[in-house]
Structures are given as structure tokens and as C-alpha cells.
Design a protein around this nucleic acid. Structure first.
Length: 424
RNA sequence: GGAGAGGUGGCAGAGUGGCUGAAUGCACCACCUUGCUAAGGUGGCGUGGGCGUAAGCUCACCGGGGGUUCGAAUCCCCCCCUCUCCGCCA
């Protein structure tokens, strides 16, 4: 969430930010917040004064008093009754302020393009050769099914649509790309994490997925737990509620986990193949560092490069796009997507998403650090980016590396993970 | 699942109804001392909010939420977590 002081100082900027992200309803939360906040601040001095009075009288009463005690007690009771009604209102206001504050989105950075949806994203750079080969490339799912590597029908029969089963070499290939991604990040000093997949509501809230993302989340109601949609959730929350030392920062983590998404409201979109599915595996990089915009920006560029390096090792053509306002999530200030070339679509398809949040998540989660000079604790900055998500990454793998003979080319960097094989 | 014990400031650890926002130690910050990456001395040092140009004043917070009381870290209830023992299962 945003610092309430920031909202008070420049509500117009915050409101404009919400509108740039195409969240008109959330923009209105700014006004509701300010109204509640104003009432609360009007009430607080009165309440505080009464509490101070109560405290003082109580202390005097402690020492000694024969029957004078009775009179004071009467007064105290009257004071208490009045105070209680004011406190009830205070409580309401505080809850209301928090509710509205959670709804208010992070303000997008100035260089975020205007726009309603991904059509308005702007290309930053394009890497690799996306030209079509001479033979006719089969769509990834047709190809994989023909090879006996994929069965969507049987998966759907037991689990519904948007499910899949992988078999044989495709399972091994998936493990290989995931492991390559983890190894790449570990070599860069990231600590690998195998996190909980089921988390409490407050963790979903802290990372900005709740409120708002409930529909996309599988929930285990009897236990009050939610299946994570990304390792970002538990990994960013590792230091929730803590005050770190500046010397410990930055924290570099690479989470590897299953991810689950309901994909509600996406009926009819991307129904074919492995593009949009309910469960997948993802390697995710997370950085927690000091509150410095320049450093956040530098980290952001670095984590995009990390993902690009993996794609280059996988010999996949891709482009990096600057995500427009309407395509940004609630907590993000800026986001790059990486899109891999997908021959069957004759288009680039999103495979990665790199976000910076500044202190938005850290404020919600209570991740702070004590500056080296010993000053007051500050909220950290957080960032994250996909390193690799499968099976979506298998789409370009199966199409770009498909060969005329019906076999699959194995990129050099991947061969050590597949027993040295160069074709599958 | 059953039975106990416990959750206090960055950490360790006192505190069982008002004198406690909280002893003490460590860590940390500032200054001083000291002939050398050690040791010592003095002072400071929880977090968040409100009011104030400021100095400062004030309120809340001792796992979370309710309650008792004029007054709760301290008493009662519910929940969460940790540890130990038993059971169960892998």
C-alpha cells in the first residue's frame, strides 16, 4: 500500500495513477480514504485527551483515598462510558481507512505508456531470429500430442479444461529447463527457495493479490489457506514483519514452485494447448533491498537481463515490452514483459513478467530495515521477475526447435541436463 | 488427534493488577580514552499514530482478537504459532 502521508500530500497524483491503470473504482477510494482520515484525525485529539484524563485520575486514585475514592470512581465511570462510544467510532474509522488504503494502487512510473490493454505495450528490444523455417511447423500441442508427450483430453477428463499431462521426454525436457533456470540464478548468488504452496490470507494481502485477486485463487476453505499463484507470494513474504539490518541487504532469492490459477473469466481465451493452464511450475527471482529508487531501477534492469540470458541459452527469439498502464497490476510501479516468439501464433506471447514495486509490497508486509547510520527503520523495496515458467515456455521450445524430420532440437546449454542428447 | 509449557523491544531475558513502555545483558549510534582490526568510559537507543514551524506534548502497542476492571504485559474467553510428551500416519 501507499504511505498515507503520500496520499494526503498529493491525492491528485494518486488518483491520476489509478486512472492511468484503468482502475476507476479504485481511484474513488482516494476520496473515501481522505474523508475517513479527516474524521479520524478530528476525533483522535479528543479521545487522547480523555484517555490522558482517565489515566491521571486512575493513578491518583491508586495511592490512597478513604471515601473520596467513591466520588472519583463515579466520575471515572461516566468518563469511561463516553470514551467507549468514541472509541467504537475510532475503530470503525481505522478499519475503513485500512480498507480504502489497501484498494489504492501503486502509482505507475512516468515512463509507463498510456493504454488500456496489452495492445498498447511498447517494444523495448527484440533479440534472436524469429523468421519462419522452410517446412511447416506444427503447433506445439499437435506436435507434442503426436509425439506421445502430451495428453490434454485425458487430463481434462479427470481434472477439467485447462489441464494437461506430460509424458516421456517432454517431462525430462521440462525438468531440464527448470533446473537450468535455477542453476543460472544460483550462480548469480541467488538463494534457492522451496516455499509453502498454501498460504494464509494475510500473505495474499501483503503481496497485493488480495483484495481483488480472490477469484483467481484456489482456496482451501476448511483450513483458511490459499494455493499460491506464484512463488513471489511466499518468497517476498519471507521477511514480513521483520526489521533487517542494512548490511544484510540486498536479499536475493530464487523460488521454485508449483503455481495454481483459477483463470476465472478467461473462458474462450487461449483455450488451445499449454498457454493458459491451471497449474504450472515457475522459477521466480525476488529481490529485497534498501529504499532507493535508483537501486530499484538498476535491479529491475538486472533481473530482466537474467531472464533474457536464460532465453538466449535456450536459443529462443524474444522481445521485451514496456507494459502500459491498463495492463499493470495494482501493486506495480513499472513492468517489463518478455514475450517469446511462438510460430503457431505468428506472434510473440508473454512468458515472463518483471515488476518493481518500490515499497508498496514491503509496506503491506511490514518488511523494513534499519539504515546503517542507525536511523529510523524504513520500508524495503521489492522486485520480482520470472526466470522461467513451464509449460508455457514449452510452447516456443516445441515450435522454434521443431525440425523438418519431426524431431526436436536440444539447445547446447540444455544438453548436460538431458544426458548429452542433441535431439529428442 | 490428546496432554502439558511457552510466545515481552534488533537479539537474549526479567516482570503476575496502578510506582512498567517495560529491569538487566548483548548489539547498535555519538563522543571520550587508549601507541596500533583489542579493551575501557560517558551518554543515547523500541514501533506506530495525533497535535506542533520547532523544542516538545500526547495516545496506542508486551503473538492476534474479544472481555473483566476506575485502571491489564499481568486476570478470563477464542484464535494463531513454537517447544516437549503420547497417539496416529508416512
Amino acid at each position: 500500500m501507499l504511505d498515507i502521508k503520500v496520499i494526503r500530500e498529493d491525492p491528485e497524483r494518486v488518483r491520476a495513477g489509478a486512472l492511468k491503470k484503468h482502475f476507476p473504482a479504485r481511484a474513488e477510494a482516494v476520496d473515501r480514504l481522505l474523508a475517513l482520515d479527516a474524521e479520524l484525525r478530528g476525533l483522535l485529539p479528543r479521545i487522547e485527551q480523555m484517555r490522558a484524563e482517565q489515566k491521571q485520575a486512575g493513578k491518583r486514585l491508586a495511592g490512597l483515598s478513604p471515601e473520596q475514592r467513591e466520588a472519583v470512581l463515579e466520575q471515572q465511570k461516566a468518563l469511561k462510558a463516553e470514551l467507549q462510544s468514541l472509541e467504537a467510532r475510532e475503530k470503525e474509522l481505522q478499519v475503513g481507512v485500512r480498507e480504502q488504503q489497501l484498494l489504492i494502487p501503486q502509482v505507475p512510473d512516468p515512463e509507463v505508456p498510456e493504454g488500456k490493454d496489452d495492445q498498447a505495450n511498447t517494444e523495448v528490444r527484440r533479440v534472436g531470429d524469429a523468421t519462419q523455417p522452410t517446412f511447416e511447423v506444427r503447433a506445439h500441442d499437435d506436435f507434442a500430442t503426436a509425439r506421445g508427450w502430451l495428453d490434454v483430453e485425458r487430463a481434462a477428463a479427470m481434472a477439467g479444461s485447462r489441464n494437461y499431462m506430460l509424458f516421456g521426454d517432454l517431462v525430462l525436457l521440462q525438468d531440464a529447463v527448470l533446473r537450468l533456470a535455477v542453476d543460472h540464478m544460483v550462480a548469480k548468488g541467488f538463494v534457492p527457495v522451496d516455499p509453502p504452496l498454501l498460504v494464509r490470507d494475510n500473505i495474499m494481502e501483503g503481496t497485493g493479490f488480495f483484495p481483488g485477486g480472490e477469484e483467481q485463487t484456489y482456496r482451501c476453505e476448511v483450513d483458511g489457506l490459499n494455493l499460491i499463484g506464484t512463488a513471489e507470494v511466499p518468497v517476498t513474504s519471507i521477511h514480513g514483519g521483520e526489521i533487517l539490518g542494512e548490511a544484510e541487504l540486498p536479499k536475493l532469492y530464487v523460488g521454485r514452485s508449483m503455481c495454481f490459477r483459477r483463470e476465472a473469466g478467461t473462458y474462450g481465451r487461449d483455450t488451445k494447448g499449454l498457454y493458459r493452464v491451471h497449474q504450472f511450475q515457475k522459477v521466480e527471482q525476488v529481490i529485497i533491498d534498501v529504499a532507493d529508487e535508483g537501486r530499484s531501477r538498476a535491479h529491475h534492469e538486472a533481473i530482466v537481463r537474467n531472464a533474457e540470458e536464460v532465453l538466449q541459452m535456450l536459443e529462443l527469439p524474444y522481445r521485451v515490452v514496456n507494459v502500459c498502464g491498463g495492463d499493470l497490476g495494482v501493486p506495480q510501479a513499472f513492468k517489463y514483459d518478455i514475450e517469446c516468439w511462438m510460430p503457431s501464433r505468428q506472434a510473440f506471447g508473454e512468458t515472463h513478467s518483471a515488476s518493481r514495486f518500490y515499497d508498496y509490497q514491503a509496506r503491506r508486509l511490514g518488511i523494513r530495515y534499519r539504515p546503517a547510520d542507525g536511523g529510523k527503520p524504513l520500508h524495503c523495496h521489492t522486485l520480482n521477475n520470472t526466470v522461467l515458467a513451464s509449460p508455457r515456455i514449452l510452447i516456443p521450445m516445441l515450435e522454434v526447435h521443431q525440425r523438418a524430420d519431426g524431431r526436436l532440437h536440444v539447445p547446447t546449454a540444455l544438453r548436460p541436463y538431458l544426458g548429452g542428447r542433441d535431439r529428442l
